[in-house]
């Protein structure tokens, strides 16, 4: 054990010596051929670029998901019958269950039907991206390149939800869409008053005689509205970081376990990650549904 530690330290030292100076770059190619850095990065690596637009490995993955979903949609469209086939029946069962679940949040089938398509497709997109990131070959097939003096392994594919860009895009879409939905459903003026509560300030002089406590209550209401603005930003942060963190952590976990022992040992963790992928997709979709529902509910006094 001790000897191993020593050797590790020696290697580290040697590496520092080797890669420390800029002048050592020529030596790198010679010595580093045997040692390729295999770490999982916090960001998606660029694979190639088309006219100034860098295509990252996670973008490639999400294109695969897009293609898969389009194919699925087309197949379903082709096979759509009044008397359902097995495939259609399965899809219908899932949709029925999802509708029931959504009903329990919105409490109204009409409202559910308005929000449902967006939420359900968010769920599908995230779920497929989560699961696709775990397929064998994704994260393990790639090429070796020289980067800042290191030889670095760059995989061709990376789970799209293990890239902060994707989760941030989805979170932004979710929160912005929920606000737009709120404006459409309950009207611009009412919706504005949720955040900048002008109505509460204006009604103070009028109601002062009948209810003196309003002097204290309504300014509080106004500040609560301001806090709601912060809340919207927090929603974006929590949605995007939760999803990114969970999926990225899963990939790091799987990679670490595979380093310890590559056979059989990662299997239980793979199952765990399947469940995590499902749960994270579900949480993201459910939270989006909740945001939509809350946004479309008029404030009541």
């Amino acid at each position: 054990m001790e000897t191993q530690q020593v050797t590790n330290e020696e290697i580290l030292q040697a590496e520092q010596e080797l890669f420390g100076g800029e002048s050592a770059s020529t030596e790198v190619q010679e010595t580093a051929t045997g040692e390729v850095s295999h770490e999982v990065t916090l960001f998606a690596e660029p694979v190639f670029s088309i006219g100034g637009f860098t295509v990252t490995n996670s973008l490639l993955n999400s294109w695969i998901v897009v293609a898969a979903l389009i194919v699925l949609a087309m197949v379903l469209r082709k096979k759509l019958r009044t008397i359902p086939s097995k495939f259609q029946g399965t899809v219908e069962m899932i949709i029925d269950g999802a509708l029931g679940l959504a009903d329990s949040v919105t409490g109204d089938r009409k409202k559910t039907l308005k929000i449902f398509p967006v939420v359900f497709i968010i769920f599908l997109f995230i779920l497929l991206n989560n699961w696709l990131g775990m397929l064998p070959g994704i994260g393990s097939i790639g090429y070796v390149t020289l980067e800042e003096g290191h030889q670095v392994f760059i995989p061709y594919f990376r789970g799209a939800t293990a890239d902060f860009n994707t989760t941030l895009a989805l979170a932004l879409l979710s929160v912005i869409a929920s606000n737009v939905f709120g404006i459409i459903v309950i009207g611009g003026w009412k919706y504005l008053n949720k955040f900048i509560n002008i109505k509460a300030l204006v009604e103070v002089p009028g109601k002062l005689k009948s209810n003196p406590a309003i002097v204290f209550v309504n300014p509080i209401k106004f500040f609560v509205g301001l806090i709601e603005i912060v809340g919207e930003v927090a929603k974006i942060a929590s949605l995007s970081f939760r999803l990114f963190g969970n999926i990225f952590a899963g990939e790091v976990l799987l990679a670490s376990i595979a380093v310890i022992f590559a056979f059989a040992l990662p299997i239980p963790f793979l199952f765990l990650e399947i469940i995590v992928g499902l749960i994270q997709a579900l949480i993201f979709a459910m939270l989006t549904l909740v945001y939509f529902t809350v946004a479309s509910t008029a404030e009541e006094h």
Binding site: T54, L59, I122, N165, L170, L172, L173
Partner: peptide, 12 residues
């Protein structure tokens, strides 16, 4: 990339 992912999702 953000916009690319947004477009991806919008297409889906």
């Amino acid at each position: 990339l953000l916009v690319a992912q947004l477009i991806n999702f919008s297409v889906v």
